[in-house]
Design a protein around this nucleic acid. Sequence first.
DNA 1: AGGCTGATGGCAGTCACTGACATGGCGGGC
DNA 2: GCCCGCCATGTCAGTGACTGCCATCAGCCT
Lengths: 188, 188
Amino acid sequence: MGRWQPDSQGRLEQAALALYSERGFENTTVAEIAAHAGLTERTFFRHFADKREVLFWGAPMLEGLMVSAVEAAPASAAPIDAVAAALEATGPLLEERRDSARQRQRIIDANADLRERELVKLASLAGALAGALRRRGVGEPAATLTAEAGIAVFRVAFARWVSDPKSRDLPQLIRDSLGELQAVTARR
Amino acid sequence: MGRWQPDSQGRLEQAALALYSERGFENTTVAEIAAHAGLTERTFFRHFADKREVLFWGAPMLEGLMVSAVEAAPASAAPIDAVAAALEATGPLLEERRDSARQRQRIIDANADLRERELVKLASLAGALAGALRRRGVGEPAATLTAEAGIAVFRVAFARWVSDPKSRDLPQLIRDSLGELQAVTARR
DNA sequence: AGGCTGATGGCAGTCACTGACATGGCGGGC
DNA sequence: GCCCGCCATGTCAGTGACTGCCATCAGCCT
């Protein structure tokens, strides 16, 4: 038997989610999270850069998924369609974790600091998408604008998917939202 | 003569800008800012909610300006055109303060926490624009998508305006960026 | 004159986060 | 089979952002 219990990071994450849900993010101290995981405060900060980051553990994976999807899109695809494919590519991953996504979103929505951090992650996603587009030869500011518009579509679709318990699946909501964006930005 | 020097808030702001510029946001303590303004740390927090907020003092004014412009747009204007008018309406205000806008942006760009707060302010702008659109009868998700797309356009245009010392004026950059967005999101 | 107000000071406390150093199983090399 | 270095964790002291509470006191109002 090892000197330490296994999966410290996972235990910290579980403890944090439970406490944030029960008493709210602000009313939970890092020391409490660590104690519930059988660890110390100092160890928490070795696994997570700060108290908020526990909730955004999966962001880099999502980012990688989207970037791969842009890269996998046929060279003939228009930038906006490559981005649409990237957004839809997150469908299976998220559908599979719909319940935990919903719990996580409740926690985030209840606290301004967490909403702030969420914006950073979405901005990072937009930056990664824009970079992937530039690697396809898309220039600036087209790459940034396409990526930002895509993230706006994703936000709208994701919000609906999370809030409505019997909404359609995420890729369909993404396609719908993209259609709305195109209708709304169309030149007359 | 009053018991206190006048314009505490202004003195705090000036001291903060100077110190953030000289030694960076992270290497400046609130106590130092307060001391430079001839006040105490406690008073700083009576004027600004937190250490970052000093730099985002003008955001509510910008928000009000944009909302008024949406309200002033003719009822016949399409949502995207009302938003475009709102973005362009910030031109005079910002052109007038181009130098301080540039200094402020250098400070923000140099620090992750400040970039994070900037995202909050932009999201707040988007929310206010979306609300103004809904009051014009625009439904959801069209209102949110139009507002978010507009803010993306503003970000791109503002970044160019700030970074390029001899760029065209802001309203023109906004019109150009909007044109690019429309080109990039157009249905084939 | 007396009392009220509003901006500020002073102070103690909490908590997020950091750096430096100690500890001790475990796995690898010999 | 023993030693040694690694590495995850513990321990501790410190800094700095932010808050609540109460004191102060010039100016204003009555």
